[in-house]
Write a protein that binds this DNA or RNA. Structure first.
Length: 342
DNA sequence: AAAGCGGGGCG
DNA sequence: CGCCCAGCTTT
């Protein structure tokens, strides 16, 4: 219990402010946790404020249409989270009378809720003894125990989850979980940890064996794919033609201009020839190429204007310039609009 | 078990 | 430029 006691003592002085801690309802906790998946607190906070204001209850969120939810999510990334958020809101609102499950196992069954989020809601909303295991916890525990088990493997996840639950203060699970995550974010940081001011330094194995910089061990490396998107901007005065992205690819559910995914780089004259063969009119290069760095892909987007009406078989949506802000777009489209249109 | 999914910040 | 961030879903 020494570990938990020191952590909680440290935490009394340096809590990070969490707006949703003012509310104890599972809805607010759940919303904040989904937003913060793989997302820094500073980046997620403004989104939480906008969501909780627009949808104060799970019923309000359930009544919204998906496009409005995605629009509010625009720019945050990992858009599957937004679609799952909406689906789960409808489920909880319509099937569970607005009440979230009050057990870890029950929470785990909901879409978009995995082991971390189930533990977070169980502890923060209901004070149940389930240890959260996120990036912070992996790092703190791997360093504290000097354990080089690969956190990217199932075995590593199981190992650190069991350890986390042994170390958990079962009398105060909510406070403990908040403390260890704040500790990972503020002291036991990834690149430049503050070991000189660390309350756990005396017992930290990695510190005493000089392995702070090499722990935790995370194997999977990121192979990054390079893709070239040619966006065709059909324009009729103040009207634009867009469509919704579908299929198993990035940005599902978001909108964009019709896109020629050429895969490899293509010389400008080849693009013009290809578009001309397709719709009879050569396009004019108007912007780009813009690079958009995703975690596993690099998108190079070039924008072409076409002085002809779009082929009907594309089934594009005709939208007035002033109405574009009702649609969710990926960042690269927003950049184009901001620099060239709006 | 491994792959895929955004965008931003930091050293 | 590479790694990381209050991870989850699909294959």
């Amino acid at each position: 219990m020494e570990f938990a006691r020191r952590l909680l003592r440290w935490h009394t002085g340096v809590k990070r402010p969490m707006p949703w801690k003012a509310r104890t309802d599972a809805y607010a906790i759940w919303l904040s946790e989904i937003i913060l998946q793989q997302t820094r607190l500073a980046q997620g906070l403004p989104y939480y404020e906008r969501f909780i204001h627009a949808f104060p209850t799970v019923h309000a969120l359930a009544r919204a249409d998906e496009q409005a939810v995605l629009r509010l999510w625009q720019g945050l990334g990992y858009y599957t989270r937004a679609r799952n958020l909406h689906e789960t809101a409808k489920y909880v609102s319509e099937r569970l009378e607005g009440r979230f499950p009050d057990s870890y196992a029950g929470l785990l069954r909901l879409k978009g809720i995995g082991p971390y989020t189930a533990a977070a809601i169980a502890s923060f909303a209901y004070n149940l003894p389930h240890a959260v295991v996120d990036g912070n916890v992996f790092r703190v525990l791997a360093r504290y125990t000097g354990d080089a088990t690969d956190i990217a493997t199932g075995r590593g996840k199981r190992h650190f989850t069991e350890l986390a639950n042994r170390l958990l203060d079962k009398e105060r699970p909510a406070a403990y979980n908040q403390a260890i995550m704040d500790f990972g974010a503020l002291v036991c940081k990834p690149a430049v940890p503050l070991c000189d001011h660390c309350p756990l330094q005396a017992d930290c194995v990695a510190y005493h064996t000089g392995r702070i910089a090499t722990l935790p061990v995370k194997s999977k490396r990121t192979a990054r794919r390079l893709r070239h998107f040619q966006y065709l901007v059909f324009r009729d005065g103040n009207y634009f033609f867009i469509r919704k992205r579908t299929g198993d690819d990035i940005w599902k559910g978001l909108y964009e201009f019709p896109c020629l995914d050429t895969g490899d780089a293509l010389p400008e004259h080849r693009v013009r020839a290809r578009v001309r063969a397709w719709i009879g009119t050569p396009p004019v290069l108007v912007a780009g190429p813009y690079r958009q760095q995703l975690t596993h892909q690099t998108i190079v987007a070039t924008f072409w204007e076409v002085a002809a009406p779009p082929p009907p078989e594309l089934e594009l949506i005709k939208v007035a310039r002033r109405r574009l802000d009702a649609y969710p777009f990926p960042k690269v489209i927003l950049n184009y609009l901001a620099r060239n249109i709006l």
